[in-house]
Simulated assay, not measured.
Amino acid sequence: MRPDNEQDTVAETEVATGYTFTRANQGVPHHPRSQRAAEDPDFQPHPAVVRGLKLFGESGSGGAAAQTLLSQPNLHVSYVWFKSGFPLPLHSHDTDCYYLIVAGSMKVGTEFLGKGDGVLIPAGAPYTVNPGEDGVEFLEMRTSPDYDTHYRSKSDVYWDRIAEMQRAGGERWATEKQPYGLIPL
């Protein structure tokens, strides 16, 4: 049996190696970033985007959850669960993003992805994710914790449809279970 001070030395040695450990129960809520340009006094987002994001927020959600697991200068990792049919609006980011599917399925563009599949979405590429009938759980990895989001649709009809999909999913989402539950959200 080791004296207590020896255990402390071992712990310090492990920390000194540069390892960073994450624990499922220590993730923090993932908060979407606002557009960098929004801080500029001359910034004028498209009126349909402003209206659409307001509708999106008011339509109720419960269709998505995310936790940031690791956020360092060169690596950002989040765990995400989109419930079945969750309408992620068309958007892009200013940094590359890689999604690795843990459970369930989703469609990105014309491709259907299932457990173990992944997709690299390059910076600036507009995309949306359409979760399958069981929803989708995935790890989201970026090379930066600071990324900009640009919502792309400038159509009121598009945003009305997104808000309606959110309202319609509310009752179903209230009882929907994660397909795998790697990290309970």
Rank of each mutant, 00 (worst) to 15 (best):
M1P: 13
P3N: 14
D4A: 15
N5V: 06
D8F: 05
T9G: 12
E14Q: 08
V15Y: 00
V15Q: 00
G18K: 04
Y19R: 01
T22Y: 01
H30M: 14
H30E: 11
P32H: 10
P32C: 04
R33C: 13
R33Q: 15
A37K: 12
H46L: 12
G52V: 03
L53N: 10
K54Y: 05
K54A: 15
L55R: 04
E58Y: 00
G60Q: 11
S61G: 15
S61C: 10
G62I: 02
A66K: 03
Q67E: 08
S71N: 04
S71P: 03
P73M: 03
V77C: 08
Y79S: 10
V80C: 11
K83Y: 02
F86D: 02
F86I: 02
P89E: 05
H91A: 06
D94V: 03
D94P: 10
Y98V: 15
Y99M: 14
V102K: 04
A103D: 15
A103C: 15
G104Y: 01
G104E: 01
G104I: 01
M106V: 12
G109K: 08
F112Y: 06
L113H: 13
K115S: 15
D117L: 04
G118Q: 12
V119D: 02
L120I: 13
A125D: 06
P126A: 07
P126I: 01
Y127P: 00
E133Y: 02
G135S: 09
E137R: 05
F138R: 02
T143Q: 05
S144E: 04
P145K: 10
Y147W: 09
H150G: 05
Y151S: 12
Y151Q: 10
K154N: 13
D156Q: 07
D156Y: 02
D156R: 05
V157Q: 10
V157C: 03
D160K: 03
A168H: 05
A168D: 14
G170A: 14
E171Q: 09
A174M: 13
T175Y: 00
T175D: 09
K177P: 07
P179S: 11
Y180F: 12
L182T: 11
I183S: 10
